[in-house]
């Protein structure tokens, strides 16, 4: 566990929304020196608190065909290993985006990206369902993304205020 300083927390809050902001500007916003920011970033990267800098892409706005599915997976946990081994077997497939252990009616939630419905269903039937400990799967295809990672995808935010107010 990494203990965060107040500066770390502020840095993370900002770059979680905008990872492209530079260290100079971060220093201005947080009222500190650029060196402090760089030290904080290096530390957070080394500790694995920052585990990547990604770009959010709305593929729906392009002609590129992509299909995303959420798959509920029920498994038999294994003695001594629990769910970890089966989770690892699943997340090693590159087409798998995320794997979560879930409380409730099923065990693992897997999100998957493919080029077509066919490709996704083939993954589920041929690879996922045939794993020894998998008891059953339910596949949900995503039809439309309204909001992802805190970002609303369906409309642009517009400033509706008057230009000048007292």
């Amino acid at each position: 566990m990494t203990t965060l300083t107040t500066l770390d927390e502020h840095v993370l809050a900002i770059i979680e929304k905008n990872s492209r902001i530079n260290t100079k500007e971060l220093a201005i916003l947080l009222g500190t020196e650029e060196k402090e920011i760089r030290d904080s970033l290096v530390r957070l990267e080394e500790n694995g608190v920052i585990c990547g800098y990604h770009t959010m892409v709305d593929w729906d706005k392009t002609g590129v065909e992509k299909v995303t599915a959420l798959i509920e997976v029920r498994v038999t946990p294994q003695r001594g290993k629990g769910f970890d081994e089966i989770a690892e077997r699943i997340y090693k497939y590159p087409e798998v985006n995320s794997v979560y252990l879930i409380s409730g009616g099923y065990d693992l939630l897997v999100s998957l990206e493919g080029k077509s419905l066919k490709q996704v269903s083939s993954f589920v039937t041929n690879k996922l369902s045939t794993l020894d400990t998998v008891i059953g799967t339910t596949t949900h295809f995503i039809l439309k993304k309204y909001k992802d990672h805190g970002t609303i995808m369906t409309r642009k935010h517009e400033d509706q205020r008057e230009m000048i107010t007292p």
């Binding site: 205020r161 008057e162 230009m163 000048i164 107010t165 007292p166």
Partner: peptide, 22 residues
């Protein structure tokens, strides 16, 4: 005085503003 300035601004469609009190 703000009103007077507002009238000039409202004629400019593509201006960007730092003039809002909300």
């Amino acid at each position: 005085g703000i009103r007077k300035f507002f009238d000039i601004v409202s004629e400019m469609k593509d201006a960007i503003s730092l003039g809002v009190g909300e």
